[in-house]
Design a protein around this nucleic acid. Structure first.
Lengths: 146, 146
DNA sequence: CTTCATCCCATTGACGCCCATATGGTCCCA
DNA sequence: TGGGACCATATGGGCGTCAATGGGATGAAG
């Protein structure tokens, strides 16, 4: 398995750390990702986490645009200004900083959500709610096309 | 036989495992499926289980869209965030995780339902109820067209 | 000196791997 | 045709390993 898939919820300990699920860590290892690039997701109240390639892809997209366009400017503000590098500790845990807490509302537990080439950190309740909503919208859309 | 067909109900043991019906296992073997892709069904309170090709089909669907579109984002939330890879043990059983239980309401027994290119995990009562309903609707539809 | 992050080690509970047993069905032979 | 051997499937459970978690100790920074 070479993509980030599935979701799991882990507890934040008294020091503010949380274990990244082993399945995700093995994908990171497979892809040789050591420094994690994290940024605030564009769509959801979640932190997206991936490797350099993720940042790379965004930068390419900016470059494809007119680099001085408002859209490119906004994008850069988000992915550069709103991005952080993080490292895991020896046990595969990461610090849940205020950068993460403030944007996601995460407090006691973190839900890790696979997104193929990256994964996300969610507040458990927010994930359940928005996933249910996505499912409902898809169900309605599917019915319409029958 | 190369499709998933019919249904069967098996018991969950004290460790939370359940045997996949032999008929389904032989289809899996025939199709050379070793890692099972499981996801929360879009329509029913059931887990759909299939091979890699299943995920592949979804991902192609996303790629056809603009990958940054809200629709693609939502779809990814469902098929990546709501999907898992699972493996059978040596005896052909799978773990009934909370991921499965919470979504389906499965507790003591699992009904396996063939769906041609994949199969589904249902709570027995839910399956019976929905199957009865489907039969009834078909009956009415048939009478109307006579 | 105090606070906070990092390194290291301990615990425990879950899961994977293995082998054992039961149950029901099929086939063969008397 | 009935009985019994045989077999495959479903099920039960022991045990080792690893992941998730907790917490002490050390070091850096304000």
């Amino acid at each position: 398995m070479n993509r980030f898939l599935s979701n799991a919820t882990n507890r934040i300990d008294s020091k503010g750390r949380v274990s990244v699920p082993a399945a995700f860590r093995s994908v990171l290892a497979e892809r040789n990702i050591q420094e994690l690039y994290c940024f605030q997701d564009f769509v959801f109240p979640a932190i997206s986490v991936g490797g350099f390639d993720l940042l790379d892809r965004f930068e390419r997209q900016i470059a494809a645009d007119d680099p001085f366009s408002p859209a490119a400017n906004q994008m850069s503000l988000l992915i550069h200004g709103g991005g952080v590098f993080m490292k895991l500790d020896a046990e595969g845990r990461l610090m849940v900083t205020d950068f993460i807490r403030d944007f996601t509302g995460i407090a006691g537990e973190v839900t890790f959500v696979g997104r193929a080439d990256h994964f996300q950190l969610w507040r458990p309740e927010a994930f359940l709610a928005l996933q249910a909503q996505a499912r409902e919208e898809r169900r309605l859309a599917g019915r319409r096309s029958e």
